[in-house]
Design a protein around this nucleic acid. Structure first.
Lengths: 198, 198
DNA sequence: ATTACCGGGTTGCTTTTTTAACCGAGTAAC
DNA sequence: GTTACTCGGTTAAAAAAGCAACCCGGTAAT
């Protein structure tokens, strides 16, 4: 239905995954700026121009995992069933993310994921680029919420909340606790934060 | 020197192998004419025109393993050290093939290899195409041996000998004996056949 | 100060691959 | 006796990938 998977599309997706995986694994292994794009291209067995056809910048090689969620908040708001308030829809969506330990909620203790988050937050250029993404996400959400300064403000507040919640969760896990252990607190924090948004 | 391994060349080789392997494994599984080229292309995850860019006909999908040895006899003759007679060089080469159980000598009892030979010899269009290859090989060998009818005759006789030896070995193995067990007879047969060529 | 290299990106140009459509022979359905 | 498959094989156009060469800013060596 929604997957008219031709040969071309399949191979492109695989190539993209191969590049992204090779990049992340090299970055985790040696650190962001100890790996050149040439190394990544070689590891993924593609040429440098091809790499940049798939990812606009070196930073995006790390952040595509966030970028793939870009516009998600806006979509959640648009696709909510009638009668459901936007904030409620977003709250439920975030909670569902917590329940399945989605990495974007920060509530995930797989070593790779933890290391990945540390990589992002401790590499200045990555953190910088990440905020760019969040701004785009914010704009999309604002559009979904309506027009004018009101929508903008609410969008900014919602995403700020999500950001704080995710970092809080991640911090607890970085301190050595398990995701399962943190889960109840994470849910409580989310409930509190989202109800204060109303 | 002979391996200017760029990305392009590496991927081409892999694609060729993927097609050949997919084809042979499907043929062994279901029989030559119960497998369409579309099936093979799908299994190898390439398109039909691409398949035919790598292999000119369906038969060649099976016979490329022989085709890869095409011109080998001629090369052996050309590359022999001075003072060595052509027939002697070919004899030694064949014997070396026996010693390492090279599939082209027929002296190999790996199930795949045996099944593969049966496939070739019991499928008329494959057997037919195989003789085409052998004719080409014969011409090349004739050129390496010199000019005129004499060279042609000797080339034909040498290749006929090799063909008979290979089929004899294969037959014994098809009857259930092991390659190791057959080896001494194979060597003896080869010695006798090649000395009669002089 | 110059030179030279290395890093992130880009620009043509060529080669390879996909796609969809087609040909011609065979063959089964009706 | 058409019609409509299927199968081996081909064609033309467009997408994608490779390659080499380049730009630019930084940094090390001389």
């Amino acid at each position: 239905m929604s997957e008219p998977t031709g040969l071309r599309a399949r191979k492109k997706e695989r190539t993209r995954d191969a590049i992204g995986d090779a990049a992340v694994s090299l970055f985790l292994e040696r650190g962001f700026d100890r790996v050149s794009v040439n190394d990544i291209a070689a590891a993924a067995e593609i040429s440098k121009p091809t790499l940049f056809r798939y990812f606009p910048t070196k930073e995006d090689l790390v952040l595509h995992r966030f970028a793939d969620h870009l516009g998600e908040a806006a979509r959640v708001v648009r696709d909510r069933r009638s009668g459901v308030k936007p904030v409620t829809a977003l709250h439920r969506h975030f909670r569902a993310g917590l329940d399945r330990y989605d990495p974007v909620t920060g509530l995930n203790d797989h070593p790779e994921v933890v290391a990945f988050h540390r990589l992002v937050f401790t590499t200045p250029s990555l953190a910088a680029r990440l905020t760019q993404y969040q701004l785009e996400d914010e704009e999309a959400l604002a559009d979904a919420l309506g027009e004018g300064i009101q929508a903008r403000l609410r969008a900014a507040q919602v995403l700020a909340v999500q950001r704080v919640l995710a970092r809080t969760n991640w911090q607890k896990i970085a301190d050595g606790r398990t995701a399962h252990d943190v889960h109840p607190e994470a849910v409580a924090d989310a409930d509190q934060a989202f109800s204060q948004l109303r």
